[in-house]
Amino acid sequence: MSNSPGDEKVGAAVTLGLLAAWALHDAEELATVPGWWRRELPALRERFPTVPEAVWRRAGSVEGREFAVAVGAMAAVVAAASAAGRLTGGRSAVYRTALDAFGLHGLVHLAQAGLVRGYTPGSATSSLVVVPFTLWARHRLRRAGVLRPTRPRDLAVGLGLAGVATVGAHAVGRWLTGVTSARRR
């Protein structure tokens, strides 16, 4: 058995592990986001006065149900990317871009925590799960000969995917919870 690049197989821990790591991370967010925003919003407004008021109003108006639906919508995206990775042995561009997006998302959480000089939802699992898993999975993909060196374009596409998927998931959450709220009236 050889240990040269390309000889190692990419297993489920690398590909489906993305979904598992994401689930751990988003469990932290589900548990902490609504209460954290309620507690921290006044102090954040005061500390960052240049942020437009519309941003603070929108952030403060996301209810727990809407956020949970958005997390469910994102679960579908991550599950599809993980499955694509599994089916292609990690060669799927969708999977690799989602993996990059996940890792970059974790770095954004850590930057947010640094900016507020304290805990922000998602920052605990970003440092313990998201970033370490992403680095480990990328290392395994490189050893298997599946991943080429990262280019700035790859990072931009990963950040773009994370942004678009997040906005889309929240739009789905807002739409679905708005639809169900309207039905109850």
Results as ranks from 00 to 15, higher is better:
His105Gly: 05
Asp100Pro: 01
Ser2Leu: 12
Ser4Tyr: 07
Arg151Lys: 12
Glu29Tyr: 11
Ala182Gln: 07
Val77Glu: 09
Thr50Asp: 11
Ser123Phe: 03
Val33Trp: 12
Ser92His: 07
Pro5Gln: 04
Lys9Trp: 07
Pro34Leu: 05
Arg57Met: 06
His139Arg: 15
Lys9Phe: 06
Ala31Asn: 08
Glu40Leu: 10
Arg38Phe: 06
Ser127Arg: 09
Leu115Asn: 12
Leu87Gln: 05
Val55Gln: 09
Trp56Gly: 07
Thr177Val: 12
Val62Gln: 07
Phe48Ser: 03
Leu147Phe: 01
Leu44Phe: 08
Ala54Asn: 07
Ala73Gln: 02
Ser127Thr: 03
Leu19Thr: 00
Phe67Pro: 04
Val129Asp: 05
Val94Gly: 12
Pro34Arg: 00
Gly106Ser: 10
Glu29Asn: 13
Glu63Phe: 11
Ala73Ser: 13
Gly158Cys: 10
Glu40Ile: 08
Pro149Glu: 12
Gly90Asn: 11
Phe48Cys: 05
Gly178Met: 12
Ala23Cys: 04
Ser92Cys: 10
Gly90Pro: 03
Gly11Tyr: 01
Asp154Ala: 13
Val108Lys: 08
Ser127Ile: 06
Leu107Asn: 00
Val78Thr: 04
Ala182Ile: 01
Ala124Tyr: 09
Ala171Lys: 09
Val157Pro: 02
Val116Arg: 11
His105Pro: 03
Phe67Lys: 03
Leu176Asp: 01
Leu16Asp: 02
Arg38Tyr: 01
Phe133Pro: 01
Leu155Cys: 13
Val167Gly: 09
Ala93Cys: 06
Ala84Cys: 08
Leu161Asn: 05
Gly122Phe: 01
Ala111His: 12
Ser2Thr: 13
Ser2Ile: 04
Ala165Val: 10
Leu19Gly: 01
Thr134Ala: 15
Asp7Lys: 02
Ala169Glu: 06
Leu18Tyr: 00
Ala76Pro: 04
Thr150Asp: 02
Leu115Trp: 12
Pro49Ala: 08
Ala182Arg: 14
Leu24Asp: 10
Leu41Gly: 11
Pro52Val: 04
Ala124Glu: 05
Gly89His: 06
Ala83Phe: 04
Ala27Asp: 07
Ala75Met: 13
Phe48Gln: 02
Ala81Tyr: 01
Leu128Met: 03
Asp100Ser: 08
Glu66Tyr: 02
Gly163Arg: 00
Ala79Tyr: 03
Pro52Thr: 00
Ala59Met: 12
Met74Trp: 13
Val94Cys: 05
